[in-house]
Design a protein around this nucleic acid. Structure first.
Length: 310
DNA sequence: AATAGGACCAACCGCACAATG
DNA sequence: TCATTGTGCGGTTGGTCCTAT
């Protein structure tokens, strides 16, 4: 935000750390603990900026840093977590004791990404099918994007179909609910599509619920409990989703809202505490999770869940 | 033995965001 | 309310090591 990087101050060392510098940093942390990195320069005379000190400590000097090759199990976990979390290296590293985000990031780029490239299929970039017939009798608006992952290209499609509103109306209203996602995250997906979605579930929502629901699904890390609340609160016995008297059917990635409703319940039932992959009361990337499961072509079964919990 | 190219990884850079004055 | 500071994160760079020719 317009602030000059402190590391660019004159007189501060850059490049590889010397053993003496390491020693000074370790001594400082032993006495003062982690944090307050910018004080180190003032208090020790170490000619490194705070950021550099933090990085050196976190990635190299910190106790319990695990050195050596990434094991097969660790690689497997990295791939799975990357499926779930994307390039959130610090979160991934948090699930791998002794490994740093930098190390995992490097490993990903030098090993796993390379493997993935070999397996990569021809890519279809964001595809957008414009609204259909202007008379609005059918809603044919569809956005489809590709979730590019290390071993598979998975199309993730959010679908909302309407029965008595013009396609453009629906496009305008629903896109307006979450304008940020498509701007900020090209690999995320969102869309509206035509409405022969017979698997649609039985949900009635008013405007507020619809808005909440879309906001949650379109956030980067919707909370399971939030999704669950919205869906279960509005789950009724008829076959449509109603907003302002208009009827919609909703599906995500081809899954009906009933399946979506069951999905978080199953996730909540799962023993997240033992695998620490994703905590039920924390955020997770719903779309990534869907795309992770999608290639298995399975329902939301315990087996499918088990495959990511393993 | 020399060297070019690739692989690896530590460190840097820019940005975002929360805290603080 | 706004500017500044501190911290953390992901992307990128560049130095070093390794390997093939």
């Amino acid at each position: 935000m317009g602030r000059k990087p402190r590391c660019s101050k004159d007189g501060l060392n850059k490049g590889a750390w010397t053993p003496h510098e390491d020693e000074m940093l370790v001594d400082y942390v032993k006495i003062h603990g982690e944090g307050k990195w910018s004080n180190i320069v003032r208090e020790t005379g170490l000619k490194r900026c705070g950021k550099s000190c933090r990085l050196r400590w976190m990635n190299y000097l910190r106790p319990n840093i695990k050195r050596g090759n990434i094991s097969d199990d660790e690689e497997d976990l990295i791939i799975r977590l990357h499926k779930l979390l994307g390039n959130r290296w610090s979160l991934i590293a948090g699930r791998l004791p002794g490994r740093t985000d930098n190390e995992i990031k490097n490993y990903w780029h030098t090993n796993i990404a390379k493997k993935a490239q070999l397996q990569r299929q021809p890519r279809i970039d964001k595809k957008r099918i414009a609204p259909g017939s202007p008379n609005g009798t059918a809603s044919n608006f569809k956005i489809q994007s590709i979730e590019s992952q290390c071993t598979a290209e998975v199309a993730v499609t959010t679908t909302v179909s309407k029965e008595n509103k013009t396609a453009q109306d629906l496009q305008d209203s629903t896109l307006a609910m979450a304008p940020s996602r498509t701007q900020e995250n090209e690999t995320s997906s969102k869309g509206l599509a035509s409405g022969d979605d017979d698997n649609s579930s039985n949900i009635v929502m008013d405007d507020n619920y619809m808005e909440d629901f879309c906001k949650i699904l379109d956030s980067d890390f919707p909370k399971l409990s939030d999704i669950n609340d919205i869906i279960t609160t509005n789950h009724h016995s008829n076959d449509t989703l109603e907003v302002d008297g208009d009827r919609y059917s909703v599906s995500i990635n081809g899954c009906s809202t009933r399946e979506i409703a069951e999905f978080p319940e199953k996730l909540l039932e799962a023993d997240w505490s033992s695998n620490k992959c994703v905590q039920a009361d924390q955020g997770f990337d719903f779309m990534s999770l869907l795309s992770f499961l999608e290639p298995t072509d399975e329902d939301w079964t315990e087996d499918a869940l088990g495959s990511i919990l393993r």
